[in-house]
Simulated assay, not measured.
Amino acid sequence: MIDPDPYNADLEEDQEEADLWFVPAPPEEEPDFLSPLPRSSDDELSQIADWQAAQRDLVVELADAARLLGVLDEMLRRGPKGWSQRIALTEAAQLGWITGSRLSVERLGLWTELRLSHPGDDARDLERGSWAYRRLAGNLQPLEGMKAFLNRTPVGEQSLLDDKIEGWSAAILAANALHPIALGGFAHHLWPLAGIGSPGDKLECSVVGARIAAQAKGAALRFAPIAMGGSSALLASGTAERKLRYWIRGVSNGASRAIRILRLLEDWSARATAETQDLSGKTHGRLLTLFAAWPMISAPTAEKMTGVSRASVQRNLDALQQRGLISEVTDQSRFRVWTANIGSAG
Rank of each mutant, 00 (worst) to 15 (best):
G209Q: 04
G209F: 13
A210K: 00
A210D: 01
R211A: 08
I212G: 02
A213C: 06
A214W: 01
A216N: 05
A216G: 05
A216F: 01
K217R: 12
A219T: 10
A219I: 09
A220R: 13
L221K: 03
L221T: 03
L221D: 00
L221N: 02
R222V: 03
F223I: 09
A224C: 07
P225V: 08
P225Q: 09
M228F: 07
M228A: 14
G229T: 02
G230H: 11
A233Q: 01
L234T: 12
L235P: 03
L235V: 11
G238Q: 08
L244S: 06
W247S: 04
I248S: 04
R249K: 15
S252A: 15
N253F: 11
G254H: 10
S256H: 11
S256F: 05
S256Q: 14
S256W: 06
R257E: 06
R257W: 05
R257T: 11
A258C: 11
A258T: 03
R260E: 04
I261T: 09
I261Q: 05
L262G: 01
R263V: 00
L264G: 00
L265Q: 00
D267N: 01
W268H: 11
R271E: 13
R271D: 13
A272N: 08
A274P: 00
A274K: 11
E275H: 12
T276D: 10
Q277D: 09
D278H: 14
S280V: 05
G281H: 09
K282G: 12
T283D: 07
H284P: 05
